[in-house]
Amino acid sequence: MIALSLQNLDIFYGETQITHNINVEIKEGESFALVGESGSGKSTVLKAIAGLAPEWSGSISAFGQPRSHNIDQQFAKHCQMVFQDPYGSLHPRKTVDATLSEPLAIHGVSNQNGRVEDILVAVGLDRKFRFRYPHQLSGGQRQRVAIARALMLEPKLLLLDEPTSALDVSVQAEILNLLKRLRREQNLTFLMVTHNLPVVSFLCDRLAVMRHGRIVEIADVAELKRGALKEPYSRELMDISSAHAG
């Protein structure tokens, strides 16, 4: 089954057209990466899917259902987003517990207490963190909370916007392992924006390379690993990445 399909997606902010003709199909259970130039519209694509960038034309459909332009409660249950910046995405005056209970309260789910406890275990956060405020958590712990919040409603599709770029390598490794495990356990579908090709190689099955608001290439991760991307821009990214690692 197709988890997410974007067809001829053009996204606008007022007068400015940000993306041009985006076409992507992601199968259920797949992990798909969106890489490319800074400012090319990767986050914008995620925002349009989530409903935070309502001006678009073309079509977005998730699990066979076409998506409306705004945020809607029903869609929220299937699809959640994790933001790039763990410092900016948690409410500074809410404890971890309050942050995690909120989606349950919105959707009138019962047994909030038990669900919060379960999710903390799932993302590997000790119980002692439950009543802390964000400023008492490290960047990696905050990002775990953000992931836990996204998983609270048991969505099937997770939109990840550079989930590890603000984290140090060892915490990045923890989060990547966590994401990989959760995907396996809960059969999640990922659409992940990143600029880090090694991360793509570790976590993803396919990738799309974006530049100037267009997708220039869609490839299998196997091709990335072999260094066999075709487009010149993709090759440039790949070459710089391997030069650093070299």
Partner: peptide, 26 residues
Amino acid sequence: NSEFIAAIRLQGASSLRVILGHVLPL
């Protein structure tokens, strides 16, 4: 426009809820 407000909206919270529960405490 911060991300934590966006995150709450994404969970389907109504504007009333966002304002009373998340904007006012700040």
